[in-house]
Design a protein around this nucleic acid. Structure first.
Length: 110
DNA sequence: AACATGACGTATT
DNA sequence: TAATACGCCATGT
């Protein structure tokens, strides 16, 4: 069901440089609550041509999802550091959570 | 249909 | 902080 994948990709694509979002948050914002794992699948299946900022998606615990030492871990840490984001020794990501876009603020219901 | 496996989340100890 | 447990959901066997 690539329909869901596209919703997820769109959310990820909108995460600003230097900020991050958890898998669960991305899922919720994509209108797919409780499907954090689907976000992981969507990112893994994302075409390279999309050039998604997948490295800005981390665990709700604020750490990088990959195991320390893995190639993927190093790549993500490197990409984040390239955005001036600090990474702790155990994979803690010191970056602000992307809350909402100006559009969402102005158009939010209520 | 049953079971295993993940780029997950939360609660508990 | 860490280990465990359990919930959750799409996919593949």
């Amino acid at each position: 069901m690539s329909e869901n994948y596209e919703r997820i990709w769109k959310i990820v694509a909108d995460i600003p440089v230097g900020s991050v979002l958890s898998y669960g948050e991305v899922a919720r914002r994509a209108g797919l609550p409780r499907r954090a794992r689907l976000v992981g699948q969507a990112l893994g299946a994302a075409p390279k041509t999309l050039k998604l900022p997948w490295h800005r998606v981390i665990l709700s615990s604020g750490r990088i999802a990959f195991s320390r030492g893995s190639a993927a871990y190093c790549k993500q840490a490197k990409l984040l550091r390239a955005e001036a984001v600090k990474i702790g020794d155990k994979g803690e990501v010191y970056a602000p959570t992307h809350t909402q876009t100006l559009d969402e603020v102005l158009w939010s219901p209520e």
